[in-house]
């Protein structure tokens, strides 16, 4: 809920055009709900983004686009463990699907 407020405030203060959200949750289900929330609004209708469609582009920290933008040493230190743990293929599929919906919606 607090993170929803933070994202909403950032959009209110800075505008949405230069913002990208990077999600870090290892669980595909959790990552998917979080990604859905910052693009199409809170699906549980519980937080500040209930009914608010920010349409922010969303990536997961484990996707190659993000990995290639971060120095390898830092990435290994900060995300190496998560990369071992998470189902990166499933996460990639979910995030590509959400971005695809964002483009066509």
């Amino acid at each position: 809920m607090e993170k929803q407020s933070t994202i909403k405030k950032l959009v209110d203060d800075l505008g949405a055009q230069d913002l990208v959200v990077v999600i870090g949750a290892a669980d595909p289900e959790v990552a998917s709900v979080t990604a859905e929330t910052v693009t199409f609004g809170d699906p549980s209708f519980a937080g500040p983004l209930a009914g608010v469609s920010l349409r922010l582009p969303v990536y997961h920290i484990l996707e190659p686009e993000v990995k290639s933008a971060i120095p390898a040493e830092i990435y290994e230190e900060q995300a190496g463990f998560l990369e071992l743990v998470a189902d990166t293929e499933e996460i990639g599929r979910i995030f590509r699907e959400i971005r695809g919906r964002l483009e066509t919606a």
């Binding site: 289900e29 699906p43 463990f81 071992l84 743990v85 998470a86």
Partner: peptide, 23 residues
């Protein structure tokens, strides 16, 4: 928990312990 958006808590922990064994 999964239907409430909180994921599969034990599975996430087991995968992390497995990752320790990999490391």
């Amino acid at each position: 928990t999964v239907s409430g958006g909180s994921g599969n808590v034990p599975l996430a922990n087991y995968r992390m312990i497995g990752a320790l064994a990999v490391l």
